[in-house]
């Protein structure tokens, strides 16, 4: 009995992060990088991957240490763990992906204060009933959900705002020259996120209505 729930549990934990509790569109956490780095597909995607790495790493370490961290100082302890992983990401990106590091700028160190990571540490990895493995899967699921959301918004803004995808003019040179530049600007970030949220609210309300009928 316990084995089977465990197996089904891990899949469910993963899908929970990707769809049911998608950090961006369902929980609306970590909004700063969502708005700032989705100017293009590649920026959004790499921000998602960087965050995913920190999420998985900190979830695993915090889950391993949860019995040793005194309850009263758990938040500062979590923050130190998270900040260490962010420093690793900073160093690796500086060494191997300098262009991306410069493009994402201050938002790489700001992963430390991304609420998704602290929220998962507090509400999942720090809980005694969740094993190290489950915490890793939770971090992976949330990370994939975040990466998908950022890539989706990045692709949308890049196509509409600059007429390109991954730098290739997919809508033709004419469109690229006269693209809806507003979507590449900060204002477009707010519009895109707002519209995507409305779209997801619509889709999920339809799904919920169907479930109620059944």
């Amino acid at each position: 009995m316990k084995e089977s729930t465990k197996k089904a549990g891990l899949g469910k934990v993963f899908m929970n992060g990707v769809i049911t509790e998608n950090p961006t569109f369902r929980l609306v956490l970590g909004t700063c990088p969502t708005l700032a780095t989705t100017v293009s597909l590649i920026n959004g995607f790499s921000m998602g991957v960087a965050t995913m790495f920190v999420l998985v790493g900190s979830n695993v370490v915090i889950s391993m240490l949860k019995n040793f961290i005194p309850d009263k100082v758990r938040i500062p302890a979590y923050v130190v763990v998270i900040a260490s992983f962010v420093t690793i990401v900073q160093m690796v990106m500086q060494a191997y992906f300098l262009d991306l590091y410069n493009a994402l700028g201050v938002f790489i160190p700001l992963i430390v204060v991304n609420c998704i990571i602290l929220a998962r540490a507090e509400s999942f990895a720090g809980k005694t009933e969740n094993s190290v493995g489950a915490s890793a899967v939770d971090g992976l699921g949330m990370g994939v959900g975040f990466t998908l959301a950022l890539s989706l918004m990045g692709a949308f803004r890049e196509i509409i705002g600059s007429g390109t995808l991954l730098g290739n003019p997919i809508l033709g040179e004419g469109f690229a020259a006269n693209a809806f530049k507003i979507f590449a600007s900060p204002a477009g970030g707010f519009f895109t996120f707002g519209l995507f949220l409305a779209l997801f609210n619509f889709v999920f309300s339809k799904i919920d209505a169907k479930k109620k009928k059944a």
Binding site: V28, F190, F193, G194, L195, A198, N201, F202
Partner: peptide
């Protein structure tokens, strides 16, 4: 569907 965060963002 626009209520809450969505309309605030727009």
């Amino acid at each position: 569907n626009l209520r809450g965060f969505s309309i605030s963002l727009i």
